[in-house]
């Protein structure tokens, strides 16, 4: 379908983008990679009155390591994360996850800032951000990941607030993200992440609820010496996933346990 009509302006700086969003008002939206927004507009599920195209903003395109943190600009594309030596050395799980987001065409345009702002329950980076205590930095404030993903498609972002960067801790120890899906380029039916940080495990799940989930019960079981298999039994504790086209709620809980066990085992291997 053809999207509804909208006004369009390009921004070349964060300042200018924020001013344009204020000028256009509440119904305006940021356009980044467009790979969540444009499909919604084509189905007319989203009909913004104006789009502020932030793609020309060069200051949002960088990957650096500073003060023991990996800083990723909001407009960094999946393909850049996938191939970046800096990411591979400092947070390899992020490069591996990026390699499995969508397909080549999606990865060439979709951006990390867009994934965070969109807050799809099946988004892969939000799970990493949550378990690693990443920060989402905007032109107004710094959000801890645990306070950012509030509900499905819901974040505390104000309408003229831009995601500018995502700050991750450096973590290059044992790690694994397993994405269970039917076809190669699909979103996760369920995803499970395991990452060792300072000797302790961080465990998280994708698409088992409206927001990413940190599996503290599994982390605690591992910390008190449980085997991966025993610890992973706790992965579905307290989960209340909604059924969708691809999986029932019970099946998602089953996947949460199985994938968590595999993620821990494969990370340790």
């Amino acid at each position: 379908m053809i999207p509804a009509a909208f006004e369009y302006e390009r921004a070349t700086s964060v300042q200018q983008a924020s001013e344009l969003l204020q000028r256009f008002g509440e119904d305006a939206k940021v356009l980044a990679g467009g790979h969540s927004l444009i499909p919604l507009m084509r189905l007319r599920l989203s009909q913004p009155s104006a789009l502020v195209d932030i793609n020309p903003i060069k200051e949002l395109d960088y990957i650096t390591v500073e003060g023991g943190k990996l800083r990723v600009g909001a407009l960094v594309r999946h393909v850049q994360l996938q191939n970046s030596d800096t990411v591979k050395q400092n947070l390899p799980i992020l490069a591996e996850v990026a390699d499995e987001v969508g397909d080549n065409q999606v990865r060439n345009l979709g951006s990390i800032g867009g994934v965070m702002a969109h807050a799809d329950a099946a988004g892969d980076y939000p799970t990493l951000a949550l378990i690693l205590d990443a920060e989402i930095v905007t032109n107004k404030r710094r959000h801890a990941a645990k306070d950012f993903f509030k509900d499905i498609f819901t974040t505390p972002l104000e309408h003229d607030e831009l995601v500018c960067e995502v700050v991750f801790p450096i973590a290059n120890g044992p790690h694994k993200y397993i994405k269970f899906r039917r076809r190669l380029f699909d979103w996760a039916i369920v995803g499970a992440a395991a990452q060792k940080v300072d000797g302790g495990w961080r465990i998280g799940l994708t698409n088992v609820g409206p927001t990413p989930v940190r599996s503290t019960a599994v982390e605690q079981a591992l910390a008190s010496g449980a085997s991966p298999a025993d610890a992973a039994e706790h992965a579905s504790d307290g989960l209340n996933p909604s059924a969708d086209l691809r999986a029932s709620a019970d099946y998602k809980k089953h996947l949460a346990r199985v994938l968590t066990r595999r993620a821990i085992e494969q990370a340790s291997a």
Partner: peptide, 15 residues
């Protein structure tokens, strides 16, 4: 030089 899905990009973005 990059493969993209031309249904998921507005023509004005190809400026």
């Amino acid at each position: 030089g990059k493969a993209v899905k031309s249904c998921t990009l507005f023509a004005v973005q190809a400026q």
